[in-house]
Simulated scan of single mutants.
Amino acid sequence: MKTKLYYIFLGLAIILFISNCNTPKKISNSEIKEEPVVIKNDSLEYEIIILDIGFNQYLNTIAQPVGYYTQAYLENRNRFLVPIWNSRVSDPTRFNPNIYQNIIDYNANINYGYDVNYKLFNYFQFAQRKYRMTLR
């Protein structure tokens, strides 16, 4: 019995060794250094820094590409989503303060530009997926 087990483990080890030699190494999420995402408009001196792990990957793999949405669409969505987010920040007894940490100072009358609106909108999409919540 011990001999059979030994050969089974030896066989598995050889298979694993061969498969590791033939396949390229995959990089796990823990090996990728997550850089903060900076949302800013220099002319307006407006800046948001997002440190949420996984947001970079979301922007690069899941989010619709830049240009997919119009700026008007993104502005309309952000006008709707920012007040919901801010109300949750203001109510830490009902909503997780580890998720809703900072008020977003977003004025619908200011043109922040496409990049700011795109990344802000996609952060809301990312947060809803990651934290399994709905901003309504």
Results as ranks from 00 to 15, higher is better:
Thr3Phe: 04
Lys4Val: 01
Leu5Tyr: 08
Ile8Arg: 01
Phe9Ala: 01
Phe9His: 00
Phe9Ile: 07
Gly11Met: 03
Leu12Arg: 03
Ala13Lys: 02
Ile15Leu: 15
Pro24Ala: 09
Glu31Tyr: 06
Glu34Thr: 14
Glu35Pro: 08
Val37Cys: 05
Val37Thr: 15
Val38Trp: 05
Val38Ser: 13
Val38Ile: 15
Asp42Phe: 03
Leu44Asp: 04
Glu45Gln: 15
Glu45Ser: 15
Tyr46Gly: 02
Tyr46Thr: 03
Tyr46Glu: 00
Ile49Gln: 09
Ile49Ser: 11
Ile53Trp: 01
Phe55Asn: 07
Phe55Glu: 01
Gln57Ser: 15
Asn60Cys: 07
Ile62Met: 13
Ala63Val: 07
Pro65Phe: 06
Gly67Ala: 07
Thr70Asn: 08
Gln71His: 09
Glu75Trp: 00
Asn76Thr: 13
Pro83His: 07
Trp85Thr: 06
Asn86Leu: 03
Arg88Ala: 04
Ser90Asp: 13
Ser90Lys: 14
Phe95Lys: 06
Phe95Met: 01
Asn96Gln: 09
Pro97Gln: 12
Tyr100Glu: 00
Ile104Cys: 03
Ile104Ala: 06
Asp115Thr: 10
Asn117Phe: 04
Gln128Arg: 13
Gln128Thr: 13
Arg129Leu: 14
Lys130Thr: 11
Tyr131Gln: 10
Tyr131Met: 01
Arg132Met: 14
Met133Trp: 12
Thr134Cys: 03
